[in-house]
Every structure is written in C-alpha cells, then in structure tokens.
C-alpha cells in the first residue's frame, strides 16, 4: 500500500505538485491521466524518490520513504519502474538486463536468476530474445523486456511512466496486453498513461491530475462517462 500525504514538488520556482494526498491499496490498478505538464510524471517519480519531494510524505506499507534515515535502495527493490524511454542497458544482453539486479542486489545465484529470467521472458512473449541486445529489438519488444526486468525483483508495486508513449502505434497493443495480464494476476499498479481505452478497461480507479493537484478521481465509469469537474470534461472532450 502506498500512502501519499500532502505531496509538494517544486523545481526551483516552478511548483509542479501543489499538495497531493492519495492512497493506493494493494492489488489496485490506478491510472493517472491529465494534460502534459500537469505533474503526473512528477507524481509517479516521487513515489520511488526519483524526484525528492519538496514537502509532504510518502509511505510504503506504513514506512516513510522520504525520510533521510530510510534505506532508499532497499525500498526501491520493492517497487518496479517502467519508463517511457525504456532505459534498457545497451551494453548488456536481454538476459543480463533482467538478471543484473537479482544477482547484484539480491545476491541470487546466476542459474536461479537466469531460470527466472527465462520464465519472465516467456510471460512477456520474448523467450527467443534472451541473447539479443537492446539495439536489435523493436520498441515494443524493448518495453516488454523492461517490464520483465522490473518484475525480476519481485516488486510489490509496479510504476509505469507513460510506457507506450514512445512506441509506434502498432506496438502499443503488445505492451498493453502484457500489462493487462499483470493486472489480472493481482499486481498493484500505478500507470501514467494517455491510453484512455486501456484505462477504461483495466483501471480500478482513475486519477485526473491537472495544475499539480488531483482535480477529480473515481472509477473509470465515473470519470469517463460522468465527469463532474469542468477541467476533466474539457480534457476528456479533447482526447476521447
């Protein structure tokens, strides 16, 4: 469970998050939507402290993570993250991308890590790509490897920061499919996305973030079919 209390983030004078309070429950799939520049990426990056909050608190299972005494490396092991730009390690094979953290961080034996890696590649449909290098993969394949890499650490939560925004349209489906299956298995997920159809279908809850606050939130049905806030209405009328 992730709890966020009165989260603020400023870059110099630019205030991006202006007080966000939110709880993400176990096994919940939460999609975050909103116009660009609204602060939704900053919000998700604060959840694993890739951005240091300026004020407010973030808790993972009751433990305050933006505390100077918190062991952030240990906490990050429990939260997987998938980026818009994949960020695979170009000098390592697909298998090495996946096994690096389990071996170096968790101290897992190589054979065990590779067995797990093969299992995960099966799940994302890339069993035949274990020995390929990132440069040999398409965007959709790269992103599926990135998902497998994050899953290899057995995270409790998966954070997705616009996972399909850098993909060619015909590759969006294969990535969303993997994410849907993950959601079905009960993974707790926070997903920043522009894929409204996906959000409608998969999300338990949708947050509409604009101007650094959560303007409106609710079930996909509420948000997409009966939005209350004027800004939500105007945003949805442009994207749907």
């Amino acid at each position: 469970m992730i709890e966020v209390k009165n989260l603020h983030k400023a870059f110099g004078k630019l205030e991006v998050l202006k007080g966000i309070t939110e709880t993400i429950n176990d096994k919940e799939v939460v999609c975050v939507i909103g116009p660009s520049g609204s602060g939704k990426s900053t919000f998700i990056r604060c959840l694993n402290l890739l951005e240091e909050p300026t004020a407010g608190e973030v808790f993972l299972d009751g433990e305050k993570i933006n505390d100077p005494k918190a062991d952030i490396d240990k906490i990050r092991e429990r939260m997987g993250m998938v980026f818009q730009s994949f960020n695979l390690f170009p000098h390592k094979s697909v298998m090495d991308n996946i096994t690096l953290a389990p071996i170096k961080v968790k101290g897992m034996a190589r054979e065990e890590a590779e067995a797990k890696g093969r299992e995960l590649l099966e799940v994302v449909g890339l069993a035949d790509k274990a020995d390929s290098f990132p440069a040999q993969l398409s965007g959709g394949q790269k992103q599926r490897v990135a998902i497998a890499r994050a899953l290899a650490m057995d995270p409790e939560v998966m954070l997705f920061d616009e996972p399909t925004s850098a993909l060619d349209p015909e590759m969006v489906g294969e990535v969303l499919q993997v994410m849907k299956e993950l959601a079905k298995k009960g993974m707790t997920m926070v997903i920043v996305t522009h894929e409204m159809g996906f959000a409608k279908e998969v999300a338990d809850r949708v947050l509409f973030i604009d101007q650094g606050i959560i303007m409106e939130q609710g079930s996909p049905k509420d948000i997409f079919e009966n939005p209350q806030n004027e800004r939500t209405k105007s945003f949805l009328s442009k994207v749907l």
Binding site: E77, M81, N87, M153
Partner: peptide, 25 residues
C-alpha cells in the same frame, strides 16, 4: 540520465550503478 534512473529504481546503489552501468558505457 535514464540509465542511472533505471539502475537506481531496480535497487542498485550509487556505486553499483557506476560500476555496472555507467562506467562500462
């Protein structure tokens, strides 16, 4: 910068990130 972010978000510490990800590249 995404390389550092990916490594750190997997739980690698500063030194491991340098050693396995940044320095080799």
């Amino acid at each position: 910068k995404g390389q550092t972010e990916a490594a750190r978000s997997l739980g690698l510490n500063r030194f491991q990130t340098m050693r396995y990800i940044i320095v080799p590249q």
